[in-house]
Amino acid sequence: MASLWQYANPQKFLQTTGAVLPVLAVLTALTLVVGLVWGFFFTPDDYRQGATVKIIYLHVPSALMAINAWLMMLVASLVWLVRRHHVSALAARAAAPVGLTMTAIALLTGAIWGQPMWGTWWAWDPRLTSFLILGLFYLGYIALWSAIENPDAAADLTTVLCMVGSVFALLSRYAVNFWNQGLHQGASLSMDAEENVADVFYIPLLVCIAGFVLLFITLVLLRTRTEIRARRISALLARERMA
């Protein structure tokens, strides 16, 4: 009986990911290097933005992954809530620092890009502001995980926080939209937009996005393995103390 749920068994998860991880790591490195080198060395400058357009190959993928990491955490938390699979809760925990780093990269590259283009490092623009708030949510989530000792209670409480946080993060997104019309341009990647990014930029950008997605998956698998082992260590130590 092959189904997704068999990976809820920590042993099975460790086995399978142990086999997959090296392949995935090589693939990630390859895609990222190809994408970033292509983006950095072999793309033309934009006629308005000059060379700063090259920052897009970091900015857009990291911003995408910052949001998707939160979504992944939400899904994993819900799986934990419904089916009580520990691996799922640990995967949510493992994803949070990766998401936080992605948020930081998106904000930092955005600031560096904004400086020459808008003449300011930071503006209280809806997109920037909601990313900052997303970063705060990541911080709170990580802090709550590390503050609670009982692992099951920690998983439950962070699940509740993740669900409430998702609602409030969405709410904040629309609230800041109302609050301030921004400097930031609209979506650069949408299916129906007339005015999309031109192909010369688009294809290396897609490679970079694929690289960031792969990087996220690899890191989350690696970190989930670590969390499973850490959990086993604390269980064994507790048993030794009891004996």
């Binding site: 060379a51 990291s62 620092p97 780093t101 990269i105 930092l108 020459p116």
Partner: peptide, 22 residues
Amino acid sequence: LGKYAQAVIGAYALSIALLVLL
């Protein structure tokens, strides 16, 4: 990279440093 060399290289260096750290 023209006059934006610093910005572009800075962005790449910073991001790659963060990723390597992670």
